[in-house]
Design a protein around this nucleic acid. Structure first.
Lengths: 210, 210
DNA sequence: TAAATTAAGTGATGTAAATCACAAAATAAT
DNA sequence: ATTATTTTGTGATTTACATCACTTAATTTA
């Protein structure tokens, strides 16, 4: 735990803070597709992502989903922070896209560290900023892009987060993330393949052009 | 200035902080449609809204707009906070929807107050939370709602922010905010009128049902 | 008061995406 | 090996919204 913490966070946190995190943080390994946070959960702390990839989705009353953004190592879930501090509910669901490792930080420390460590204050503010910007990008793609552009962005974004050039997924799962239908995704994928940007296989999409 | 500050912020900030704000804050009155923050601005501080209503919009490369959310008294612009702290650029435009009053807080104080005042820390975190939630609502409406529902939400939201039961605006301006065409808005408005939810006039929309 | 400008109404048509219905592969289960 | 299940392909149809083209009404200005 300490090793990975130092690897990804030593440029972010001062040494004393890393020591404290090692003391109070709870290490947890997440299986692929494991739900880390669910709709309406009250957070007792926040997760620091050490390794892996987490998908953050929003769900409406009819149970329909839309992807908000992905988290990768070095990230934390700003929504959880909010929820943890204010004892409010979390409006999102967080699911491990692949096996991941996190450190869970108890909420009691969150405000205490705001006083003690400038690096922690920066990290919290910076995390909120990144998330606000991601949300704006999501709004941009919903408001300004057509399905084909959104799909291509989805594929390249996800490939980067997963650190792979091909994605192991189905057309149906992409449709769920993008809140559209499988038929639409299948047709647009075929089109992207004809344009030479991707190559389709069963349960797998190779991305040829980034 | 002190009077309104105490009226809307005395339950949020401790007395000492209000005193400091009065000392270093710069009061400013905004005319209707005045631009407070523009795309790519680097913020030298953040605005506290004392009175009025501010519209926050996002713009894409083609100059097309979409409304993100409104700010009302008691609010601050989380995007500016981010930009001010990190010296980064602001990805949004903020426009006064009506005559408004703000206090501009210099960025040097922002971090200093994080140490000194718990109420300030809470306010900053709380502001980010509110904004994250607003963005999620915006994403919800783009992803899950049809134009008619979005339009009705737009009208009722805006009426509440403006503290009026009728809005002085044109179909074209609504279309700009919602990133659609005037024709579409005109037709949907007529439909809402037939359903008895609103009443249409020239340059004015009465909202009959909230 | 006439002309110009701005706001709103409306028919016709185009188009991206949604939905339906079913076929054809590929893979997994028995 | 046969059956069942999952994944992908594809035509046909519908729908919401976009776009075009033009009219009518209200308001401003000259």
């Amino acid at each position: 735990m300490r090793e990975k913490l130092e690897k990804y966070y030593s440029f972010v946190f001062e040494k004393e803070l890393i020591d404290e995190i090692v003391q109070v943080g709870v290490y947890k390994k997440l299986r692929e597709n494991e739900i880390l946070v669910d709709l309406g959960d009250k957070m007792k702390g926040i997760p620091l992502l050490l390794e892996g990839a987490i998908k953050i989705v929003r769900e409406d009353k009819n149970g329909e989903e839309i992807l908000l953004y992905f988290l990768e190592r070095g990230d934390t879930c700003a929504s959880s922070f909010a929820s943890a501090i204010s004892n409010g509910k979390c409006g999102i669901r967080a699911i491990a896209e692949k096996e991941s490792e996190i450190i869970f930080l108890p909420k009691e420390k969150l405000d205490e560290w705001m006083l003690k460590y400038k690096s922690w204050r920066n990290f919290v503010i910076e995390s909120y900023n990144i998330r606000l910007n991601e949300m704006m990008e999501t709004i941009d793609s919903l408001a300004f892009m057509n399905m084909s552009e959104r799909l291509y962005k989805y594929l390249t974004d996800k490939a980067q987060i997963m650190r792979e050039t091909s994605l192991n997924t189905t057309h149906q799962n992409i449709a769920y993330d993008m809140h559209t239908s499988r038929v639409v995704i299948s047709r647009l994928l075929k089109q992207l393949e004809n344009e030479g940007k991707i190559k389709l296989h069963r349960n797998k999409i190779e991305i040829l052009e980034f």
